[in-house]
Amino acid sequence: MSDEYKGILVVGEIYDGKIRPVTFQLVTKARELADTLNTNLSVVLLGHNIGEMAKEPIYYGADKVYIMDDKIFEPYVAEVYSRALSKFINNLKPEIVLIPATHTGREYGPRIAAALQTGMTADCTDLVIKNGRFVQVRPAYGGNIMGEIITPNHRPQISTVRPNVFKTKEPDKNRTGEIIQVKPEFDSIKIRTLIKEIVKTTVTGAKKLDEAKIIVSGGRGVGSKEGFEKLKELADLLGGAVGASRVAVDLGWMPKSAQVGQSGITVQPDLYIACGISGTIQHIVGMKDSKVIVAINKDPNAPIFNIADYGIVGDLHEIIPMFIEEIKRIKKK
C-alpha cells in the first residue's frame, strides 16, 4: 500500500517576494536523503508571480519544481495553503515531506498531516536514514531530551525543520531540472480568513535573526537601549544580526522579533555571542545548538558559561569595544 509513495517533497516558502533561505537548507538536506534512498527530489512553491525564482531550488539539488501560481496565495493564509498542499501532496504521493518550521509552516503544516491522516514530527534537528528507515530526531521537554521518531505504516512521513538546522551547499547554477506548473485544486473555495494588515517590527535593513550566521545577543547586562548600539556595531562588522534575551525585550530595549528563547525564536547560527545574558533555561533552549558560543558576563557563576565554548568574566561595556577593535585590526590585514 505504501509502495505507491515515492520521492521526497520539500514545501518551499516565499516570503516578502523571495524564497526563504530555510527552503534551500531543506533542499540541501533532502538531496542527501534522496541520494541515500535512490529516489527523486521535488519542491513545491505556492505564490503569485513566482517567475524566475522557480529555478533556484534546482541549483540546490531539486529535480523538479512544482509551481502553484495564483493570486489566492498572496498574502499567505493557513487554510488556503493547507488545502492546496493537502490536495497536491495527495496527488503526488511522496514518501517524505519536509516543511519549514517557520511561524507559517507551523501554522499550515499540522493541518496537512491531519487532512492526510498521517504522522508528523515537529522541529526536527536531524533527519537520517537508518536501515532504509526514515528517522526523525527532535528535542522535547525544553531540550532536556532527544527522541527518535518514525512513521512506520503511514505515508507520507512529514517533518518540520527550523531554519538554520541544516546548512546549504554552494548553489550550482549549471544544474538543470524540470519546472512544472500546477493548477491549484480546492475541495471548497470558501475562505474564512482575511489578512487585514502585515506589520514588520524589525528595524529596516536589519538582518533577520533566524537567517543570520552570526548573532550578537544582549541581556540585562547591556543596561539600556543605547547599550545595544555597541552590540549592533559588532554585529554589523561581522555581518551578523542582533538578538536579545527576554528581559531585554521586556524592558523595551529591543523589539519582540529579536527575542531568542522558548517564547521567542530558536536560532542555530555559526557563532552566538551572548553579552550580559545569564542564561536561563528558556534562553538556552533557543540558542544552545549554535556551533560556537561566546559569553561575556560579569557574574562568574552565570549558567551561560556552562555551555559557552569561550567566556570572559567581565564588563561587556569594556570588552565589546575590544572585540570591535580586534576584528577591525584583522580586517585591515
Binding site: G119, P139, G147, E148, P152, A308, Y310, G311, I319
Partner: peptide
C-alpha cells in the same frame, strides 16, 4: 501514525575556556 524509537539525553555542551583577566589578550 508515529512511534518513538528511542529517547536519549542530548549531547552535552561542556564548559569551554573562561578568561577572567587580561581582557585584551583574551579577546
Amino acid at each position: 501514525p508515529t512511534r518513538v524509537l528511542k529517547m536519549y539525553p542530548p549531547p552535552k555542551r561542556s564548559r569551554g575556556t573562561v578568561f577572567t583577566e587580561n581582557y585584551q589578550d583574551a579577546v
